[in-house]
Amino acid sequence: MKNQTYIELTDTLKQKINQLLNEKVVDYVIGYEKGSLWFKTRPFMIRKQTEVEKVIWNRFCQFNLSTFLKPISQRGEKIGIVAKKCDLKSIVELIKNNQVKKENLYIIQVACDGVLNWQKLENFSGIPVSKVIEIEENALNLVIKTSESSIEVLKSDCLLDKCLVCDFQHSTYADDFISISDENNHEIRNQTIPYFESLEDVDYEGRLEFWLKHFSRCLRCYACRNVCPACFCPTCMFDSQEGLWISKESKTPENYVYHLTRAFHTATLCVECGECERVCPVNIPLMKLNKKLAKEVKDAFGYQAGLQVDELSPFKTFCQEDTDEFK
Protein backbone atom coordinates (compact mmCIF):
# COMPACT_ATOMS: atom_id res chain seq x y z
CA MET A 1 0.00 0.00 0.00
CA LYS A 2 1.50 3.26 -1.10
CA ASN A 3 0.69 6.59 0.38
CA GLN A 4 3.16 9.41 -0.11
CA THR A 5 2.26 11.16 3.15
CA TYR A 6 2.89 8.04 5.17
CA ILE A 7 6.19 7.37 3.42
CA GLU A 8 7.38 10.86 4.24
CA LEU A 9 6.15 10.54 7.82
CA THR A 10 8.02 7.25 8.18
CA ASP A 11 11.24 8.89 7.02
CA THR A 12 10.89 11.77 9.47
CA LEU A 13 9.99 9.33 12.23
CA LYS A 14 13.09 7.24 11.52
CA GLN A 15 15.28 10.33 11.67
CA LYS A 16 13.73 11.34 14.94
CA ILE A 17 14.21 7.90 16.52
CA ASN A 18 17.75 7.78 15.24
CA GLN A 19 18.44 11.13 16.83
CA LEU A 20 16.87 10.13 20.15
CA LEU A 21 18.94 6.96 20.34
CA ASN A 22 22.06 8.71 19.16
CA GLU A 23 21.83 11.48 21.70
CA LYS A 24 20.88 8.93 24.36
CA VAL A 25 17.72 10.87 25.19
CA VAL A 26 15.99 7.51 25.56
CA ASP A 27 17.13 3.94 26.18
CA TYR A 28 14.72 2.52 23.68
CA VAL A 29 11.79 3.51 21.55
CA ILE A 30 8.53 1.62 21.24
CA GLY A 31 7.40 1.74 17.63
CA TYR A 32 6.01 -0.39 14.86
CA GLU A 33 7.65 -2.74 12.41
CA LYS A 34 6.28 -4.57 9.42
CA GLY A 35 4.15 -7.57 10.31
CA SER A 36 4.21 -10.97 8.67
CA LEU A 37 1.46 -10.01 6.27
CA TRP A 38 0.99 -6.79 4.40
CA PHE A 39 -1.98 -5.66 6.46
CA LYS A 40 -0.35 -6.32 9.81
CA THR A 41 2.13 -4.40 11.90
CA ARG A 42 3.81 -5.47 15.06
CA PRO A 43 5.00 -3.59 18.14
CA PHE A 44 8.73 -3.23 18.13
CA MET A 45 11.26 -2.11 20.77
CA ILE A 46 14.03 -0.25 19.01
CA ARG A 47 17.25 -0.39 21.04
CA LYS A 48 19.98 -0.11 18.44
CA GLN A 49 20.40 2.40 15.68
CA THR A 50 20.83 -0.46 13.23
CA GLU A 51 17.22 -1.43 13.93
CA VAL A 52 15.80 1.95 13.04
CA GLU A 53 15.55 0.97 9.37
CA LYS A 54 12.78 -1.49 10.28
CA VAL A 55 10.52 1.21 11.70
CA ILE A 56 7.35 1.82 9.74
CA TRP A 57 4.37 4.08 9.94
CA ASN A 58 1.34 3.22 7.86
CA ARG A 59 -2.39 2.90 7.89
CA PHE A 60 -2.29 -0.41 9.74
CA CYS A 61 -0.51 0.77 12.89
CA GLN A 62 -3.51 0.05 15.04
CA PHE A 63 -1.88 -1.30 18.17
CA ASN A 64 -2.05 1.02 21.18
CA LEU A 65 1.60 0.90 22.21
CA SER A 66 0.98 2.59 25.55
CA THR A 67 0.12 -0.82 26.97
CA PHE A 68 3.88 -1.45 27.05
CA LEU A 69 4.25 1.43 29.50
CA LYS A 70 2.46 -0.55 32.19
CA PRO A 71 4.90 -1.06 35.09
CA ILE A 72 4.57 -4.82 34.59
CA SER A 73 6.47 -4.58 31.32
CA GLN A 74 8.87 -1.81 32.35
CA ARG A 75 12.43 -1.84 33.55
CA GLY A 76 12.88 1.71 34.77
CA GLU A 77 14.49 2.88 31.58
CA LYS A 78 13.79 6.05 29.72
CA ILE A 79 11.37 5.24 26.96
CA GLY A 80 10.47 6.86 23.70
CA ILE A 81 7.05 5.98 22.38
CA VAL A 82 5.38 6.43 19.04
CA ALA A 83 1.79 7.44 19.59
CA LYS A 84 -1.32 8.30 17.68
CA LYS A 85 -3.67 10.92 19.03
CA CYS A 86 -5.87 8.25 20.61
CA ASP A 87 -2.91 6.45 22.20
CA LEU A 88 -1.93 9.69 23.89
CA LYS A 89 -5.09 9.56 25.95
CA SER A 90 -3.97 6.23 27.36
CA ILE A 91 -0.57 7.67 28.16
CA VAL A 92 -2.22 10.58 29.95
CA GLU A 93 -4.18 8.09 32.08
CA LEU A 94 -1.02 6.12 32.89
CA ILE A 95 0.79 9.28 33.96
CA LYS A 96 -2.21 10.44 35.95
CA ASN A 97 -2.35 7.15 37.81
CA ASN A 98 1.38 7.12 38.59
CA GLN A 99 2.07 4.12 36.41
CA VAL A 100 4.74 5.92 34.42
CA LYS A 101 6.63 9.14 35.06
CA LYS A 102 6.35 11.85 32.46
CA GLU A 103 10.05 12.64 32.81
CA ASN A 104 10.88 9.05 31.83
CA LEU A 105 8.89 9.36 28.65
CA TYR A 106 9.52 10.88 25.30
CA ILE A 107 6.28 10.91 23.37
CA ILE A 108 6.48 11.16 19.60
CA GLN A 109 3.05 11.88 18.23
CA VAL A 110 2.79 11.04 14.56
CA ALA A 111 0.11 12.49 12.34
CA CYS A 112 -2.49 9.84 11.71
CA ASP A 113 -5.17 9.92 9.10
CA GLY A 114 -7.14 7.05 10.55
CA VAL A 115 -6.29 3.39 10.92
CA LEU A 116 -7.63 0.83 8.50
CA ASN A 117 -9.09 -2.41 9.75
CA TRP A 118 -8.39 -5.34 7.48
CA GLN A 119 -11.52 -7.20 8.44
CA LYS A 120 -13.67 -4.23 7.48
CA LEU A 121 -11.64 -3.98 4.29
CA GLU A 122 -12.53 -7.56 3.47
CA ASN A 123 -16.18 -7.12 4.37
CA PHE A 124 -16.78 -3.93 2.42
CA SER A 125 -14.79 -4.79 -0.68
CA GLY A 126 -15.71 -8.46 -0.70
CA ILE A 127 -12.12 -9.21 -1.65
CA PRO A 128 -10.16 -11.52 0.64
CA VAL A 129 -6.92 -9.90 1.77
CA SER A 130 -4.98 -12.74 0.17
CA LYS A 131 -6.10 -11.57 -3.28
CA VAL A 132 -5.19 -7.92 -2.84
CA ILE A 133 -2.15 -6.79 -4.79
CA GLU A 134 -2.18 -3.06 -4.27
CA ILE A 135 -4.27 -0.41 -2.57
CA GLU A 136 -4.32 3.13 -3.78
CA GLU A 137 -5.81 6.05 -1.97
CA ASN A 138 -7.62 9.09 -3.23
CA ALA A 139 -9.43 11.78 -1.28
CA LEU A 140 -12.36 9.69 -0.12
CA ASN A 141 -11.88 6.23 -1.48
CA LEU A 142 -9.56 3.29 -1.41
CA VAL A 143 -8.92 1.57 -4.70
CA ILE A 144 -8.35 -2.10 -3.99
CA LYS A 145 -6.63 -3.90 -6.82
CA THR A 146 -6.45 -7.60 -7.46
CA SER A 147 -4.86 -9.34 -10.42
CA GLU A 148 -8.23 -9.26 -12.24
CA SER A 149 -10.15 -6.25 -11.07
CA SER A 150 -10.17 -3.15 -8.93
CA ILE A 151 -12.86 -2.03 -6.55
CA GLU A 152 -13.41 1.31 -4.85
CA VAL A 153 -14.60 1.45 -1.29
CA LEU A 154 -15.29 4.38 0.96
CA LYS A 155 -12.31 5.04 3.22
CA SER A 156 -14.52 5.77 6.18
CA ASP A 157 -16.12 2.34 5.86
CA CYS A 158 -12.79 0.65 6.44
CA LEU A 159 -11.47 2.83 9.26
CA LEU A 160 -11.60 1.72 12.87
CA ASP A 161 -14.70 2.98 14.63
CA LYS A 162 -12.70 5.24 16.90
CA CYS A 163 -11.18 7.04 13.91
CA LEU A 164 -14.60 8.24 12.83
CA VAL A 165 -14.95 10.37 15.92
CA CYS A 166 -11.33 11.47 16.17
CA ASP A 167 -10.25 15.06 15.54
CA PHE A 168 -6.62 14.06 14.81
CA GLN A 169 -5.28 17.20 16.43
CA HIS A 170 -1.92 17.70 18.01
CA SER A 171 -1.91 16.75 21.68
CA THR A 172 -0.24 19.12 24.13
CA TYR A 173 1.29 16.19 25.96
CA ALA A 174 3.40 15.07 23.03
CA ASP A 175 7.09 16.00 23.10
CA ASP A 176 7.20 15.93 19.36
CA PHE A 177 4.59 16.10 16.66
CA ILE A 178 5.57 14.64 13.33
CA SER A 179 3.35 15.79 10.52
CA ILE A 180 3.59 16.96 6.94
CA SER A 181 0.98 19.64 7.03
CA ASP A 182 -1.58 20.67 9.55
CA GLU A 183 -4.40 19.85 7.24
CA ASN A 184 -6.35 16.68 7.55
CA ASN A 185 -9.33 15.76 5.48
CA HIS A 186 -11.98 16.28 8.05
CA GLU A 187 -14.93 15.47 5.87
CA ILE A 188 -15.04 11.89 7.03
CA ARG A 189 -14.79 12.61 10.73
CA ASN A 190 -17.14 13.40 13.51
CA GLN A 191 -19.58 10.70 12.76
CA THR A 192 -21.55 9.29 15.58
CA ILE A 193 -21.66 5.56 15.85
CA PRO A 194 -24.40 3.93 17.86
CA TYR A 195 -22.68 1.62 20.34
CA PHE A 196 -25.17 0.80 23.01
CA GLU A 197 -28.25 2.83 22.16
CA SER A 198 -30.03 0.02 20.36
CA LEU A 199 -29.76 -2.18 23.43
CA GLU A 200 -31.44 0.43 25.59
CA ASP A 201 -34.76 -0.16 23.88
CA VAL A 202 -34.71 -3.80 24.88
CA ASP A 203 -36.21 -5.05 28.14
CA TYR A 204 -34.06 -6.49 30.91
CA GLU A 205 -34.53 -10.10 29.90
CA GLY A 206 -33.63 -9.29 26.32
CA ARG A 207 -30.50 -7.51 27.42
CA LEU A 208 -29.49 -10.37 29.68
CA GLU A 209 -30.05 -12.79 26.84
CA PHE A 210 -27.95 -10.59 24.54
CA TRP A 211 -25.02 -10.50 26.92
CA LEU A 212 -25.20 -14.13 27.96
CA LYS A 213 -25.17 -15.11 24.31
CA HIS A 214 -22.00 -13.13 23.72
CA PHE A 215 -20.32 -14.11 26.98
CA SER A 216 -21.05 -17.79 26.35
CA ARG A 217 -18.44 -17.61 23.59
CA CYS A 218 -15.74 -16.19 25.84
CA LEU A 219 -12.66 -18.41 25.96
CA ARG A 220 -11.20 -16.57 28.96
CA CYS A 221 -7.96 -16.02 27.08
CA TYR A 222 -7.68 -12.71 28.93
CA ALA A 223 -6.46 -10.90 25.83
CA CYS A 224 -8.93 -8.08 26.52
CA ARG A 225 -7.37 -7.56 29.92
CA ASN A 226 -3.75 -7.98 28.93
CA VAL A 227 -3.92 -5.64 25.97
CA CYS A 228 -5.70 -2.93 27.95
CA PRO A 229 -3.46 -0.01 28.98
CA ALA A 230 -5.90 0.73 31.80
CA CYS A 231 -5.56 -2.76 33.32
CA PHE A 232 -2.36 -2.09 35.21
CA CYS A 233 -2.85 -3.94 38.49
CA PRO A 234 0.37 -5.83 39.38
CA THR A 235 -1.74 -8.92 40.02
CA CYS A 236 -5.21 -9.03 38.61
CA MET A 237 -7.85 -10.18 41.08
CA PHE A 238 -8.77 -12.92 38.62
CA ASP A 239 -5.18 -14.22 38.76
CA SER A 240 -5.04 -14.02 42.51
CA GLN A 241 -3.72 -17.15 44.16
CA GLU A 242 -5.36 -16.34 47.49
CA GLY A 243 -8.93 -16.66 46.38
CA LEU A 244 -10.63 -17.83 43.25
CA TRP A 245 -13.12 -15.12 42.42
CA ILE A 246 -14.28 -16.87 39.31
CA SER A 247 -14.06 -20.49 38.38
CA LYS A 248 -11.37 -21.66 36.01
CA GLU A 249 -14.14 -23.02 33.88
CA SER A 250 -15.33 -20.70 31.18
CA LYS A 251 -18.98 -20.87 32.14
CA THR A 252 -21.32 -18.15 31.00
CA PRO A 253 -22.31 -16.67 34.40
CA GLU A 254 -18.66 -16.64 35.43
CA ASN A 255 -17.79 -14.87 32.21
CA TYR A 256 -20.54 -12.36 32.96
CA VAL A 257 -18.91 -11.58 36.29
CA TYR A 258 -15.48 -11.35 34.69
CA HIS A 259 -16.48 -9.03 31.86
CA LEU A 260 -18.61 -6.70 33.94
CA THR A 261 -15.90 -6.49 36.58
CA ARG A 262 -13.27 -5.79 33.95
CA ALA A 263 -15.40 -3.06 32.44
CA PHE A 264 -16.23 -1.55 35.80
CA HIS A 265 -12.65 -1.60 37.05
CA THR A 266 -11.52 0.31 33.99
CA ALA A 267 -14.41 2.77 34.08
CA THR A 268 -12.92 6.27 34.55
CA LEU A 269 -9.64 4.90 33.11
CA CYS A 270 -10.90 3.65 29.77
CA VAL A 271 -10.13 6.03 26.92
CA GLU A 272 -12.12 3.93 24.45
CA CYS A 273 -9.15 2.89 22.35
CA GLY A 274 -11.04 -0.23 21.37
CA GLU A 275 -8.11 -2.62 21.70
CA CYS A 276 -10.05 -5.08 23.87
CA GLU A 277 -12.74 -5.50 21.26
CA ARG A 278 -10.22 -5.68 18.43
CA VAL A 279 -8.13 -8.45 19.96
CA CYS A 280 -11.09 -10.53 21.12
CA PRO A 281 -10.88 -13.70 19.04
CA VAL A 282 -14.60 -14.41 19.43
CA ASN A 283 -15.91 -10.90 18.68
CA ILE A 284 -17.53 -10.02 21.99
CA PRO A 285 -18.80 -6.42 21.67
CA LEU A 286 -16.85 -5.15 24.67
CA MET A 287 -16.91 -1.55 23.51
CA LYS A 288 -20.63 -1.46 24.21
CA LEU A 289 -19.81 -1.94 27.89
CA ASN A 290 -16.94 0.54 27.88
CA LYS A 291 -18.84 3.23 25.98
CA LYS A 292 -21.86 2.85 28.20
CA LEU A 293 -19.76 3.19 31.35
CA ALA A 294 -17.92 6.20 29.93
CA LYS A 295 -21.25 7.83 29.25
CA GLU A 296 -22.55 7.10 32.74
CA VAL A 297 -19.37 8.46 34.32
CA LYS A 298 -19.66 11.57 32.20
CA ASP A 299 -23.32 12.05 33.07
CA ALA A 300 -22.79 11.51 36.77
CA PHE A 301 -19.50 13.31 37.35
CA GLY A 302 -18.83 15.29 34.18
CA TYR A 303 -15.55 13.46 33.74
CA GLN A 304 -13.86 12.16 30.62
CA ALA A 305 -10.77 9.99 30.81
CA GLY A 306 -7.53 10.82 29.08
CA LEU A 307 -7.84 14.56 28.67
CA GLN A 308 -5.90 16.19 31.50
CA VAL A 309 -2.98 14.83 33.52
CA ASP A 310 -3.88 16.79 36.64
CA GLU A 311 -7.57 15.95 36.75
CA LEU A 312 -8.69 13.64 39.54
CA SER A 313 -10.56 10.51 38.57
CA PRO A 314 -14.12 10.61 39.97
CA PHE A 315 -13.67 7.30 41.76
CA LYS A 316 -10.67 8.67 43.63
CA THR A 317 -12.49 11.59 45.09
CA PHE A 318 -15.95 12.48 46.29
CA CYS A 319 -18.25 15.34 47.03
CA GLN A 320 -20.42 15.49 50.10
CA GLU A 321 -23.09 16.97 47.86
CA ASP A 322 -23.06 14.07 45.41
CA THR A 323 -26.55 13.09 44.40
CA ASP A 324 -27.72 10.30 46.63
CA GLU A 325 -30.15 8.20 44.67
CA PHE A 326 -30.12 5.65 47.45
CA LYS A 327 -31.75 8.28 49.71
Binding site: F196, L199, E200, Y204, E205, G206, R207, L208, E209, F210, W211, L212, Y256, L260, A263, F264, A267, L289, K292, L293, E296, V297, A300, F301, P314, F315, F318, C319, Q320, D322, T323, D324, E325, F326
Partner: peptide
Protein backbone atom coordinates in the same frame (compact mmCIF):
# COMPACT_ATOMS: atom_id res chain seq x y z
CA UNK B 1 -19.07 5.48 52.15
CA UNK B 2 -18.80 8.50 49.86
CA UNK B 3 -16.74 6.37 47.51
CA UNK B 4 -19.25 3.55 47.79
CA UNK B 5 -22.01 5.92 46.83
CA UNK B 6 -20.18 7.01 43.68
CA UNK B 7 -19.25 3.50 42.64
CA UNK B 8 -22.65 1.95 43.20
CA UNK B 9 -24.33 4.75 41.28
CA UNK B 10 -22.34 3.71 38.23
CA UNK B 11 -22.52 -0.03 38.93
CA UNK B 12 -26.29 0.20 39.09
CA UNK B 13 -26.34 1.65 35.58
CA UNK B 14 -24.01 -1.08 34.38
CA UNK B 15 -26.09 -3.98 35.64
CA UNK B 16 -29.19 -2.29 34.29
CA UNK B 17 -27.49 -2.15 30.89
CA UNK B 18 -26.52 -5.78 31.16
CA UNK B 19 -29.98 -7.07 31.83
CA UNK B 20 -30.41 -7.04 35.60
CA UNK B 21 -33.17 -4.89 37.01
CA UNK B 22 -31.37 -2.12 38.95
CA UNK B 23 -33.89 -2.50 41.77
CA UNK B 24 -32.07 -5.69 42.64
CA UNK B 25 -29.19 -3.63 43.98
CA UNK B 26 -29.98 -1.39 46.93
CA UNK B 27 -27.78 0.73 49.13
CA UNK B 28 -28.93 1.79 52.62
CA UNK B 29 -27.39 4.00 55.25
Amino acid sequence: NYFTRRRLTVLKRLIEFCGINPERLQLYW
